[in-house]
Design a protein around this nucleic acid. Structure first.
Lengths: 159, 159
DNA sequence: CAAAATTCGTTTCAATCACAACGAGTAGTC
DNA sequence: GACTACTCGTTGTGATTGAAACGAATTTTG
């Protein structure tokens, strides 16, 4: 019994539980306030922050799957939060940019995001937040980008 | 641009990325080594640690959905890693326990789990691991158990 | 003890997501 | 300029997930 392997004491487990709790709260808030999913919000955040981008760039900036990015973009487009403009340097891709409505929503979302972050981590003081950030970054780099963009599926064993 | 809202600097985002990277690595390892999914592994860990349990107890101990627990149990049963014994104190539920084969696998898995943990967090020294654990626990408690067991779905607005 | 409410486990269904396959466009090679 | 190889975006498909609905068993209430 109780071989010091209590599951709860597992750091990966604790990490997963904590992340799910935080992500769940945030997702719930975005959904209720703006009807946005997390992928959609992430795309909006990048577009508002960096200006018009291709889907390719968006996938590498959000570290999401390219399919997820594509669907998020379609939703944003149908909701007229973003629009597509042809990319003159490459006929395959389009440039996505926020519309005026999208800009306005972005202006409301970002303060909310900052407030959420402050609220969820309110038990930590400034130094502790910095510590946590540093620790997580190091672990992330060690664990490797396993959930990074899918680097265009397969196409490896061709030669 | 760059209103200090770089997405990457978002702690919830960093937390999510890091957790996914770690979980992904671990899930991959369990799948390759034992053909177990994460839910299945968690159930095994608890059963090996605490002895026979009902599904109800398993859901609260693993903080997973009761459906996920049920499915994991079914898989473990068909693979003859666990078996069901009638619960004499409550005719609705069964007691799940590891078979000899399940016990043996549990004996192999736990050392691997410990090794994985040590490997994934090898960039941190002992003090830093303790720090990280403490920080995560506090954040988890603050964010609330949003991913806790589904406390039996709805049945609220009945009166 | 009969009726109502609750709980455990299971099944069903709908939404979500990753992976593979595809067409259109581009770049490289000869 | 044709042939090949590659990239971007999209669509389709299969697997995973969670919420609701359900039957069976138990507890509670009158």
């Amino acid at each position: 019994m109780s071989e010091a392997t209590q599951l709860f004491t597992f750091l990966p487990y604790l990490l997963s539980i904590t992340s799910n709790a935080v992500s769940g709260r945030i997702a719930q808030e975005y959904r209720e306030q703006f009807g946005l999913s997390v992928p959609e919000w992430r795309v909006m955040a990048v577009l508002g922050d960096r200006g018009p981008q291709t889907q390719r760039v968006l996938t590498s900036l959000t570290l999401m799957d390219k399919v997820a990015v594509n669907r998020a973009c379609k939703v944003l487009e149908t909701r007229t939060l973003a629009s597509r403009r042809p990319n003159e340097q490459d006929g395959r891709s389009h440039l996505l940019e926020l519309t005026d409505i999208g800009q306005a929503m972005h202006g409301e979302i970002m303060p909310l995001a900052v407030a959420m972050e402050r609220h969820l981590f309110r038990v930590l003081d400034t130094d502790e937040v910095a510590q946590l950030r540093s620790l997580l970054e190091r672990v992330r780099d060690t664990a490797g980008d396993l959930d990074g963009p899918s680097t265009d599926s397969g196409n490896f064993g061709l030669l």
